[in-house]
Structure formats: structure tokens, C-alpha cells
Design a protein around this nucleic acid. Structure first.
Lengths: 232, 232
DNA sequence: ACCTGAACACCGTTCAAGT
DNA sequence: ACCTGAACACCGTTCAAGT
């Protein structure tokens, strides 16, 4: 009657795909902790219990949104490297580009890495992503055994994220103040000295006092260079 | 009266330390999902609300158990490398040994890595651990800037764990059956080929078809070797 | 086939109250 | 100072019932 406007998106009936897409949007907008069955149903203009017709339970929703994000990654990655032939000389650049592209997608879903880590069943879309990576490295001259080691060495970095020991999640981190470093220095002199020097070297970093992207690429290149050396 | 035996451990009064230690034991024994305020209180022979006198809330409990585990790591690591002088030639072995020791402690608390990742405030014990690592690398001839990059490149590996894309948490993984690989091969040929070959190469691996420890060390050495080369 | 509402068993946490 | 019990606002999920 009057709720036509409010429920305009809800008029079309539910479906697994619509539920999952709404779940991703809810997590994007309000954080993963806001993703409850009741709130998700609300966003869809339905009752909580209606979801269970399209989805077996909340775990299934989490598996589902991981697969949605991984599918987005595949879509982004598929647009890459048309007609570039992969050789032992070019594999590294191709893998690097692929991983950084995956990272771009992940940066649009800050909650995703944490959820990826909690999943026990690997999503089909993640498998497809890894399949592409294996293909690339085979063309680059690696043995299956080497590729297996490489995937383990990369770990989540293969998909474009790492877990940091400092400040997981809440980016951008603010630089520690001089006062904080002084307090810290009393107990942890070497660590405080390091942080003081690093903060001094790059005081204007717009992405916070640690540029995640730079650090991600540093670690990634360290590993890729090591693998490259391994293959010769 | 009759519950003397059942509550024998509960007779001593509560304290923050006793609460945290019980929390670690509960997580060790029953998994992190069993760690609720009510069950934790039960294990201590107290009411749920009594905990709040010694601990500000559940987040504080999680911060606390991370710190307890990190303290255990420090204790284990402190027993290492007495009287070995660190030089550019020996730093790698010392860091490697330190990290593998940290990993040993973590392997006794399978729930810990996942909890480490969710914490926003870094625990004092983790800071102390990192301080020791920085000290080691300084003695090994690295600049503070290089050490900063190194810590980011190592990420959680500095503390002895990585997140794997396959099968997070539930170890040991069982080898994929031939039938599974056939199904998988239809969609993900390169990945299935790789897994088939790896499983065939090492069919007797007692730790499951992927030896986590071997893979962890492979990735760690790849990074340490890269850092070593960087410092020359 | 698809959706709902009441209900259940659990959470974390507040508050006022006990000793 | 330390602990408790009832209560509140939230979960995920079951079940029987509606269309």
C-alpha cells in the first residue's frame, strides 16, 4: 500500500543469486558483522525465514559471497593478457599482473579476506582462479611440483591479500605519535627505533604510515623473484 | 557439599590471569567456537557475570588469550641462541630457528592464528616478539627500512603461521581421491593435473597429502633467501 | 513452490542486588 | 571487593502453518 517505494527492490521474488548479491552489498556497506540473516532479509524486504528456502544456512551464505567475490576476480582477471604468449621470460610479469588485479577487486570488499580465511570448502571460483595460475606457470616452464610449492609459498597472496600482524582490518592506520613511540621505546627499543625511522623517512604517505600496496608488492616480488630463480 | 570434587579447581577465587588461562584451555580442548562467556564461567565454576569483574568484555578475553599464547612463544624463543653472535652470515639461521620455534607453540593452539588475525590492538607480547626479531636483523646488518619491509613481507609468517587457500583450519587434509580429481579435472584441468602428480609423488606423506611443515619452511626460506640477497 | 510467524536454544551484556 | 540472578536485545534455526 504505502511501502511500495521502500520495498521496490523486494518485489521481484527471492533467489539464491539475489540473496547472495544482497549479502555482498550489505557487507560492503555495513561491514561483515552486520550480515545477519535477519538484517539480510530486511534488506531484501522479506522475513528471515524466507532466506532458508534459497540458502541452506548462514554458512552457505558465507560460502556463497566468497564465491561471488572470487567470480568478480575471475571476471577482472579474464580481461588480462589477451594474446601475450607466456614463456619462462614473461611468466613473472603475467602472474604479477594477475595477482595485483585480483587485489584490486578485493580492495572493494575489505571484509572478504577475513571471510575467505574462515571457509573450509574452497569455492569453485577460487579453484578456477588457481587453475588459471597453474596454467600460466606451466607455460612459464615450471614443473607441477614446483607450482605446488609456489602456491603454498604464495598462500593468500596468490589471491591478492596478506594478513598483517599490525592493525588487521582497519585501514588506513594512523602513524604512531612521538609520544606513543617514546612509551613503546621504553619496553621495545629496537621496534620503536625502527618505526621512528620509517615514519621519518616517509611522513607524507597518503595511504597511512605504511603503504599497504607498496608493502604487498615488495613481498610479492620477493617471492616471485625467488621462484623465478628456482626455475632456472 | 557434594560438588567439592567438581568445583575443586573453582575454589580459588577468580582473577584475570585465571580467567585467561581457562579460556586458552577451553579453546584448546573444545575449539574457539566453544569459548563463550557462559561456558568459560562454567569451566571456572562461576557465573557468567562474575567474569566481567576481571575482564571488561569478550573482546578483552580474546585480546588476553592472544597475549597468553604470544607470551608462551616468547618463553620458548627466549631459550634459543644463547651466546651465538649474530652477523650478516648467521642472521638467517637465527631468524629461521626463532620463527620455527614460534610455530611449534602455535601448533599447540590451532585456534590461535585465526584469533590473532581478528585482533586490532597488537598484544604487548607480540610487540616484544617483534622487537626481538628487529634486534636480530639489525645485528645481521639490515637497515631499519629493510627490516620494515621484511616484517611486512613475512607478515604472519614472522609468528609462525600462514593462511592457506586450501582447507584452512581442519588439518590434516585427506588426499583427494582419484574420483574427486576426475570431476575436478573436467572443469579445472591444470589444477587437477598438478594435484594428481603431487599426490602420486608422495603417496605416503603421514601429515596428509600436503605436508604443512615442509611447505611452511619452503615459503619461509624463499623469503629469507630473498632478504639475505637484498642485504648484500 | 514459495514465504511467514511463533518459538527455541543460544549469545553478550546491563543493572540492581546480594555478601 | 567480589560475585550473583533476572532481564534485555540480539543471534541462527526448527517447525507447523499459510498461500
Amino acid at each position: 500500500l504505502f511501502d511500495m517505494a521502500a520495498t521496490s527492490t523486494a518485489r521481484t521474488s527471492l533467489s539464491r543469486e539475489r540473496v547472495l548479491r544482497a549479502a555482498v552489498e550489505l557487507a560492503d556497506a555495513s561491514g561483515i558483522e552486520a550480515l545477519t540473516m535477519r538484517r539480510l532479509a530486511d534488506a531484501l524486504g522479506a522475513e528471515a525465514m524466507s532466506l532458508y528456502y534459497h540458502v541452506t544456512n548462514k554458512d552457505d551464505v558465507l560460502d556463497g559471497i566468497v564465491d561471488v567475490v572470487a567470480s568478480d576476480i575471475n571476471a577482472a582477471v579474464d580481461q588480462l593478457e589477451r594474446s601475450i604468449s607466456i614463456t619462462p621470460a614473461t611468466w613473472k610479469q603475467a602472474v604479477r599482473q594477475r595477482i595485483l588485479r585480483a587485489r584490486e577487486v578485493l580492495l572493494c570488499h575489505r571484509w572478504a579476506p577475513a571471510v575467505f580465511e574462515t571457509r573450509r570448502e574452497t569455492s569453485p571460483a577460487v579453484l578456477r582462479y588457481l587453475d588459471g595460475l597453474v596454467k600460466l606457470m606451466r607455460e612459464g616452464g615450471f614443473s607441477n611440483d614446483q607450482i605446488h610449492h609456489a602456491l603454498h609459498a604464495l598462500g593468500s597472496r596468490a589471491l591478492g591479500f596478506t594478513q598483517e600482524l599490525f592493525d588487521p582490518g582497519g585501514r588506513p592506520a594512523s602513524a604512531p605519535t612521538e609520544a606513543m613511540l617514546d612509551v613503546m621505546g621504553a619496553q621495545f627499543a629496537h621496534l620503536a627505533d625502527m618505526l621512528r625511522e620509517v615514519a621519518h623517512d616517509d611522513p607524507e604517505s597518503t595511504l597511512g604510515w605504511c603503504d599497504d600496496q607498496t608493502e604487498f608488492e615488495f613481498g610479492l616480488d620477493l617471492i616471485l623473484d625467488g621462484l623465478d630463480r628456482l626455475s632456472r
